[in-house]
């Protein structure tokens, strides 16, 4: 093999390895991009400071709550409100009820999603059971409060928000759920 071929071969192999790593780098890039732009409705899983300056205005938006569970059918999960109407900036509280249908201890993780996706940037939660995994004793029913307010910067064209929670049975999830997000949730 000539020297020129070897030099070029090395460079191209480097490109290949670089692109393999880039494939994995897309994962954090995707998360960051979605978090900044709110594109896919994955809301930031952390508590807002409830003492933040909130401007309460007369503008009202409707909020719809949807709940579902994963296919494993370990939990009954329901929302105690289907719809509420809130003033922008006003702190509101709703509640959700989870029943562990099994006769063993279960870990549950709720994953929120907002539609339209861009609205997720303006839905600020001060308290949510989705911030961390919840422990449910055998056959236990727990009512979880959720407090939130809508940021005043919510775009004018949005008058209806849908907040959907999917409740998953969490076992191996603890290990893989991004640690920083769990820490943020715990604080």
């Amino acid at each position: 093999m000539t020297r020129a071929n070897l030099v070029l071969l090395r460079k191209l192999v480097l490109v290949v390895f670089g692109m393999f790593l880039f494939g994995f780098a897309l994962v954090p890039l995707y998360d960051t991009f979605c978090e900044i732009t709110g594109i896919n409705g994955r809301i930031i899983v952390k508590a807002e400071d409830s003492d933040a300056d909130k401007v309460v205005s007369d503008r009202r938006v409707k909020i719809q709550f949807l709940v579902k569970t994963d296919a494993k059918n370990e939990f009954d999960f329901k929302s105690n409100q289907k719809f509420i109407e809130v003033k922008i900036g006003e702190l509101s509280e709703v509640s959700f009820e989870v029943k562990n249908k099994t006769s063993s201890l279960q870990l549950a993780q709720a994953v929120p999603s907002v539609s339209p996706g861009t609205a997720s940037l303006y839905l600020n939660k001060t308290e949510c059971f989705c911030f961390s995994q919840q422990i449910l004793q055998a056959n236990e029913t727990v009512v979880y409060p959720m407090r939130f307010f809508i940021d005043e910067d919510l775009p004018e064209d949005i008058s209806l928000l849908t907040l959907s929670y999917t409740l998953y049975q969490a076992q191996s999830v603890q290990a893989s759920y991004s640690k920083s997000e769990l820490d943020k949730g715990a604080s």
């Binding site: 290949v16 390895f17 670089g18 692109m19 393999f20 880039f22 494939g23 994995f24 897309l26 994962v27 994963d70 993780q109 994953v111 999917t166 998953y168 049975q169 969490a170 191996s172 999830v173 290990a175 893989s176 759920y177 991004s178 997000e181």
Partner: peptide
Amino acid sequence: MPVLAGAVTMVLTDKFFGTSFFDAAGG
């Protein structure tokens, strides 16, 4: 092609090694 290799690798680890690249339950 290396990006495809990355994608199938993530599928492999999600299915058999407990990662959650594509599993909403795990973030």
